[in-house]
Each structure stands twice: as C-alpha cells, then as structure tokens.
Design a protein around this nucleic acid. Structure first.
Lengths: 223, 223
DNA sequence: CGGCTCTTTGACTGAACTCAATAGTCGTGG
DNA sequence: CCACGACTATTGAGTTCAGTCAAAGAGCCG
C-alpha cells in the first residue's frame, strides 16, 4: 500500500490557473487535484490513466475510481465547497478543461443525456467495486478488475493492452497489500489466466477469468 | 451473511403495476425490485429503510446502498434496459412514485439542481463505503457506519434512534460475517462506545467513535 | 405453546497481513 | 556508457484478524 502523509507535488491546478478548453499535461504520478481544491471546470481525460483516491489519517490510500481516455472526472464539486478526494495521474496525462455548455456538440438535451449516462455508468462501476471489496477473494478481485479494465481500455477486443498500474496501485484499488497482490498474480500466471509484464497485460483465458469472478459486462454499458 | 438463491418474494412492482404519484407499501424484507426489472417511475422513500443489494452466484449478498426517508432510489434504469440490482425493504416501507417533472415544486432548474445534488451525495456515500471496505478494520468499519447513519437518520442530534439493521444486514454492508459483527459489537459495548438492543442504537461517545474511524461528515452535505 | 428469526458462544481454520531482505527496472546525470 | 538512486517486484517466515462450522439461547408473534 502506498503510504504518504504529504502529497509529493503541490496542486498544479493552483499554479497553472484554470483556462477553459485548454489542454493540460501532467507527468506520471503528479497530483492533479488535492482534496479541498475547488476546480473551475470539468475535466475530460484525453490521454493516459488517472485515479481518484482518499488518504486516511494513518497514510493509507484507497483508490476510489479510475479514469481512462474519454472519461470525465467526478463533478461533485459543483454542489460542494471543494472536492472530497485527490486526483492523480497514473501515467503521463493530458486533460481537457470543459464547461457544461461545451461538453458536447448538439443540443442541450443531448448534452445532458450524455452527461447523465456517464454519471450512471460511473455509479455502476463504483457499485461493482463495492461488491469486489466486500465479497470477493483476492483471486476473484483481481480477475474482476482485469475483466473490467480490458472492457474499458480496449472494449474486450484485444487480449494484450497497456496496463500502467503497479502492484501498489492494484493493492490500493483492491483493498489488499502489494505483497499479496504479487502472490495472487503469480497464482494467476500459474493458472494460465494472464501475463503481466512491463506494463502490458495479456488476457490468456478470458472465459475462465469471467467465470472465476462472475463477471457480467452489463454494468459498463448504458445502451 | 444472508445467503439465498431465490428471492423470497416475487417483485411486487410487477403485480401492482406502476401508478404515478401513488404511495405504495411493502412489508419488511419484501423485494421492491429485482435485478432485471424495468420500473416506470422514480421512487422516493416516504417511511422506513430500504437497501439495494447485489446477489452473487454463490448466494452471497452485498448491500450497496441504504435509503432512508427522503432518499431516492438509484435512477440508473433511465439509461439502461433494466436495473442492475435488487431493492429490498428493511422495515415496513412506503414509497412514492415520481416522474422527473413532479420531483419537486419550483422551476426546472431548481428541480434539476436538487436532483443533481442528491446524485452527488449518493456517489460520495458510495465512495466512503469503498474506503470503509478497502482500508478499515472491523471496529473502524462499524464505527464509521454508525457515525454516517446517525447523521443521515437524525442529523447527529439524537444519541438514541431507531436502527432496523440486523447483524446479518450489517455484515452484508461491511463485507464481514455476522459472527464477526456480533463480536465487534460486543467490543464496542465494552469500550462504552455504543449500545444496540431491540433495534435501537445509542451512541454513547460520539467523539471517540469519530476519532476511532476518522469520520468527517463533509461528504454528507452538499451545502 | 411452537416455530420463526436473530443473537451469542466456542473451538478451530485459514486467507491475507507484517516485517524484512533481496533482486530487478528505469531514468538521470556525470 | 556507466553509476547511482528511486521505485517496483519478489521471496520467506511468522502472525493475526476474520471466517467457518456448529450449537445453544433469546425474542417475537400467531
């Protein structure tokens, strides 16, 4: 588990200021926002992976969401004085600043529909994570996460894809320690379910992986 | 943990049909909706407690959300063919059927603002649950849940309040077994933190409880 | 009173954690 | 091009928190 008490970077948003429609770049592991910041626009991931996480008093970290290209950051700050969690770049990251009105071409109803659908999707993902943390074994947790991320990253089409999460990241997503992640990954390799090396994940047996954890991709689509 | 493979009640919604603005009553432990149902309106809890839960293939249950009077059920089905999870009554329950347009008096912007604020709040609660399941010990999990529910049920004003959750329910919320819930409750009683008897929860030492789990109520308000 | 559901207890087991050390990887600068 | 430091991955030994299984009480309601 990643344990830090002080963010290792100041909030770049504070330094850079906010500029509508600007594309901003961040290095891997940069802090995009700290809990308590008040952004002035919405963010869409253009390239790279990002995460939201909560830090506990004892320095423990729980990752509460992942953002892949096309995803939008949680807009909860619109109705709050500030954001509740930190956002970090997992890879070199580019974000695009948006207001509600330029979220999408098309008329207002379209924009809202799209926005609403994405909100519903991210709630469903959180719900699945809740099930993962509450009721699944280490092996099942990783299997389910890999199934989800393959769908989200490449739509399930490609068996091999870029996978930037470290074992520490996986631990903080799955509510485990990195030592146990390591051992569980070896177990999955021995079962010929996956290969994971050099930030590349290969799904060797998608069927078996899905059965192992009872993965049903329905929650990822909003039709 | 509650383990059932077949819901003990058919979906009452199917039987009763949907009627706008109607108030519907359910007995304790009734199934309000099953995963796969397609409701035709939004639901607001008028009286009683309800929960959403996911059942796994092996019969395990994870509770993914609690609904107290004033809360609205997850409207994800609006953009999906059907709901993903079951909703159940934890107590005798009355629900009110709503369309978006009669959600609230006032103009359209007001209604949407209110709706949006509640969505954001329920996402924040889910995020806290994620932290709870991922990073906290049994004692901390229960402490945090009790802090949250006191706020939601009586706004933190009253030390004693109705608390209809059984130890099995608590187990399925916290990702534990009911045996361990029982032992953890006894530990909390010995520490003079709470009393819990006959569906009444008494918070004996709110301060200590909050410190124990690092509870910060900010996530529950949308200002 | 009988049949539920819910709670409590005991003995045992095991999955996952902790601590600690070693090895591999990668980018940077001399 | 190599050396260095920082991060990441791997391994081992020992521990513990929470789960499992099983049975007995308590509470509630018809």
């Amino acid at each position: 588990m990643l344990v830090i008490n002080e963010p290792r970077f100041p909030s770049p948003l504070k330094r850079q200021g906010y500029e509508k429609n600007k594309v901003q770049g961040f290095p891997a592991r940069a802090v995009v926002m700290n809990a308590g910041d008040k952004p002035e626009c919405l963010y869409r991931v253009v390239e790279g992976w990002a995460a939201t996480c909560r830090f506990l008093d004892d320095g423990k970290r729980q990752v509460t969401g992942l953002y892949l290209p096309g995803d939008h950051f949680d807009p909860g700050w619109i109705v709050r004085p500030s954001v509740l969690q930190s956002s970090i770049a997992l890879t070199p990251l580019t974000l695009r600043c948006f207001t509600f009105s330029d979220l999408r071409e098309g008329d207002r109803a379209d924009r809202e529909g799209h926005w609403w659908a994405e909100t519903v999707r991210s709630m469903a993902i959180q719900t699945e994570w809740l099930v993962n943390l509450g009721k699944r074994s280490a092996l099942e947790k990783l299997a389910h996460l890999f199934c989800e991320l393959q769908m989200r990253a490449v739509g399930g089409d490609e068996a091999v894809f870029d996978f930037p999460l470290t074992q520490v990241d996986l631990a903080d997503i799955c509510g485990m320690t990195s030592v146990h992640i390591n051992r569980t990954l070896q177990q999955m390799r021995n079962l010929r379910l996956i290969e994971l090396n050099h930030r590349q994940l290969e799904i060797l047996d998608r069927k078996a992986l899905e059965q192992l954890c009872g993965f049903d991709p329905a929650y990822l689509s909003t039709v």
